[in-house]
Write a protein that binds this DNA or RNA. Structure first.
Lengths: 106, 106
DNA sequence: CAGTATCCCTTGGGATACTG
DNA sequence: CAGTATCCCAAGGGATACTG
């Protein structure tokens, strides 16, 4: 497999929301706009370097909107785009299944 | 982060179905029982070593049932457990979102 | 406050050869 | 047919220091 072709739509979605943090970031942004450090404090354990990269990827994938106020001290706000917000259904399904799994399996 | 604690149910689900192949395996098994080589032929590009490991993990997670007929030549069939089958909702949501994403974004 | 720049380490998964 | 055993590599992400 030289090129990792992704053919299936399910795979596309997994590519976009996969990884350690993205779903958590989306989860927090579902409640509204948040600033960078505010997000970092919510996502216990994430480094600002990682948060920075995750947010940029999600911005490129058009899931979130970055609003830089160009103030001193800096102020940048992140919010979900309509596309990002439309992931809510999947997140809810995953939340529900995760609870069931934790209750049923082991 | 010495221990990668997973607190959120959404994260639990992502842990279980994340990775390159699991959703595809589930997708194929939704149509019914399949044998090992049959699965490998369907999942273009996967090596038997990787398929073997993915299936074992999914068996441990109780998503699939492994049925070894103890015949010569060997015959092993894999099918979804009820728990595994209950992921169908999520897969469908992800499929739908993936299609929309591919149509909308870029 | 909101980031970049380096460096490093773990993990997922591929290639290939061998086995009951 | 249905695997296991070795070996290897790239990518994700953590730790830390620095910056506008």
């Amino acid at each position: 497999m030289p090129t990792k072709e992704v053919c299936c739509p399910v795979e596309v979605t997994l590519k976009i929301i996969g990884g350690r943090w993205k779903v958590l970031i989306i989860h927090h942004l579902l409640n509204g706009t948040m600033r960078f450090n505010e997000l970092q404090r919510s996502l216990t354990g994430i480094t600002h370097r990682t948060l920075s990269r995750q947010l940029r990827e999600m911005e490129i994938h058009q899931l979130i909107v970055r609003n830089n106020f160009n103030e001193i001290p800096p102020r940048v706000e992140y919010s979900l785009s309509p596309l990002g917000h439309s992931l809510k259904t999947i997140l809810l399904s995953m939340d529900e299944w995760g609870r069931k799994y934790s209750a049923v399996a082991k």
